[in-house]
Design a protein around this nucleic acid. Structure first.
Length: 575
RNA sequence: CGGGGCGUAGCGCAGUCUGGUAGCGCACCUGCCUUGGGCGCAGGGGGUCGGAGGUUCAAGUCCUCUCGCCCCGACCA
């Protein structure tokens, strides 16, 4: 394309609403514009990048045996009622009625719809395995959309679903999708890590997230420095439990007045003790009814997913003020495991087993207990791995230690089991003539989020540095002075010849000063820039600069087209 | 949902405290000039000051309500 004919409104200044770098650069490079919170226009350059991501996804999934379909974005309530999610999904589900007052939602994900399709058409075990995917606009009415395309309300997702006769076959497909996802993100030119993930409220038992490594990522991931273990921090296990601190001469229990000191930090400062001497006492309501006391060391953080696993619970929720007072007889801030009003289950993190000389709430207003000895004072606890992992914790798989990194979740693979097939009665007859619910897997990729993640990971002060496979165009040709015929005709010829070779090239035919063109080229992030200027042309040459390099090299005009085409070809082959 | 911030030209902002003819930079249009990293000069167009109501001789400015956007937290996967 000629730049004079293109709709690329670049901005010199950053619109005030943008916070993170991908959002700023997408706006400045004229790729997106915000329409409402979490909802965006995609301009021509933005669409080209989206299509690049989509095409890679499409090719790799097709290669892996999946088939593309397109399901409705507007879905009838009945299917969601059948799965139970109409009530459970909450306000994130955008609901509305048609003119006949029938209820619909804008699909945030499509397990129900695809399972409905499959149950109507599939009868025999001979019809499976079946793996279907779509690339579609989704809507989730997020409480707090933010960071541009990183967490929008409307976004483009590749969602895939597979159907199998038994668990073994489903797990085989899971592994195949895992491998396909690796190829997809490799081909996108991204640095990422597959990590073990919490299975969350969707249900199911096995899941990996694909996390693009970037400091601005919303997720924390734990990875081992010695083996390939990596997990979302919510899920990450701790190899060797931290031994509890013990004091030499066990002290007797004693009340100590702590007026108005509720948080660990406040009490620790007040008593001049370090936080690891405290037993943090949290009350949880488990599965909506049972009150459970949960203990972690004062300097540790509880992981709710781990708590859920440890208790075998469906839901856990921090207890409200009234519940805390009912169980402890004290206002919030003074709870402890000793002398509770009601006998309740107590679970404690490993790091508290055997602790002595500790401090905890006394279950009395403005009072804490010192000299606490776990074995003596509250022996009746269940020990479990409950806390959030920290840097230098032991790896659960090897002798190594773990480190923390930030990541952007761009994909997730999930073994679902028969949750939806059972709810929606999607069954097949097996070889013995028995009706069996289909085993399912689900596989998602955030296409728009991948686009943002690529920028978070690939940019500099001047703008985006697109990996070649995702760039909206591969090459920009910049004639330094459009008015000068010699430069114009050379630029034009290079442009025509590159186009003929199938190179995605833009000709900056604007009558602008060179500085403006260079700034825009850097901002937009074309991987290759060809500068046609009087100095080099005098020597029969043009300049070639890669976006990621600092310097340009001069190449003879006659060789330029072949050299550039080869660079693009070889560059793409590298992914 | 709780806390905080902001809505003035396409973008970035000043003006609001202390009411009195709506401004600046960039962008845009015209002309000249210039052309290797966001040139220079001259001229010009563009605003229901987010919206509604109120106070006042007079409201961008004060009061009430409301809508939108951003950040932190809670929530959610």
């Amino acid at each position: 394309m000629r730049l004079t004919r293109m709709f690329v409104p670049t901005l010199r200044e950053v619109p005030a609403e943008a916070e993170v770098v991908s959002h700023k650069l997408l706006l400045r490079a004229g790729m997106i514009r915000q329409v409402a919170r979490g909802i965006y226009d995609f301009l021509p350059l933005g669409v080209r990048v989206l299509r690049k991501v989509e095409q890679i996804v499409r090719e790799e999934l097709t290669r892996a045996g999946a088939q593309e379909i397109l399901l409705p974005a507007v879905c009838p309530a009945e299917l969601w009622q059948a799965s139970g999610r109409w009530d459970r999904y909450g306000k994130e589900l955008l609901r509305f009625k048609d003119r006949h007052d029938r209820e619909f939602c804008f699909g945030p994900t499509h397990e129900e719809v695809v399972t409905d399709l499959v149950r109507r058409e599939i009868r025999s075990y001979r019809d499976v395995p079946l793996n279907l995917f779509q690339i579609q606009v989704k809507f989730r009415d997020e409480v707090r959309p933010r960071f541009g395309l990183m967490r929008g309300r409307e976004f483009i997702m590749k969602d895939g679903y597979s159907f199998h006769l038994d668990r073994e076959d489903c797990e085989r497909e899971y592994d195949a999708m895992f491998a396909a996802y690796r190829r997809i993100f490799d081909r996108c030119g991204l640095q990422y890590r597959p990590v073990e993930a919490d299975t969350g409220a969707i249900g199911g038992s096995r899941s990996h997230e694909f996390q693009v490594l970037a400091a601005s990522g919303e997720d924390a991931i734990v990875s081992c420095t010695q083996c390939d273990y990596a997990a979302n921090i919510e899920k990450a296990g701790i190899g060797v439990p931290t031994p509890a601190a013990r004091v030499e001469a066990p002290a007797a229990l004693a009340d100590v007045a702590t007026p108005g000191q509720r948080t660990i930090e406040e009490v620790a400062t007040f008593l001049k003790l370090s936080a690891d001497r405290f037993v943090k006492t949290l009350l949880y309501i488990v599965d909506g009814s049972e009150t459970v006391v949960v203990l972690v060391r004062g300097d540790h953080t509880l992981s709710e997913p781990k708590l859920k696993d440890a208790l075998g619970a469906q839901t856990v929720a921090l207890a409200g003020e009234a519940e805390v007072e009912a169980a402890t007889g004290a206002p919030v801030g003074f709870a402890g495991p000793i002398g509770l009003v009601r006998a309740v289950r107590i679970v404690a993190d490993h790091a508290l087993v055997g602790i002595s000389g500790a401090v905890t709430g006394a279950n009395k207003a403005d009072t804490h207990l010192t000299g606490v000895d776990q074995a003596r004072d509250f022996p009746d606890v269940v020990a479990a791995d409950l806390r959030v992992a920290e840097t230098d914790d032991a790896c659960p798989r090897c002798e190594g230690r773990v480190t923390l990194q930030r990541g952007i979740e761009v994909g997730q693979v999930f073994y679902l089991g028969t949750k939806y097939s059972t709810a929606l009665n999607a069954t097949v007859l097996d070889a013995e003539g028995n009706e069996r619910p289909l085993e399912m897997g689900t596989y998602g990729i955030g296409v728009t989020r991948t686009m943002a993640a690529a920028i978070e990971q690939n940019h500099d002060d001047a703008g985006i540095v697109w990996p070649l496979p995702l760039a909206p165009f591969q090459v920009v040709i910049v004639p330094v002075k459009w008015a000068e015929e010699r430069l114009r005709t050379t630029a034009q010829r290079l442009y025509d010849e590159l186009l003929a070779l199938g190179v995605e090239v833009v000709l900056d035919d604007r009558d602008e000063r060179p500085g403006v063109k260079f700034k825009d080229a850097d901002l937009i992030g074309y991987p290759l820039r060809v500068t046609v200027g009087p100095r080099a042309l005098e020597r029969g040459a043009v300049e070639l600069k890669q976006r990621r390099d600092a310097d340009a090299t001069e190449i003879p005009v006659d060789e330029a087209v072949a050299r550039i085409a080869a660079l693009v070809r070889e560059g793409l082959a590298g992914f």
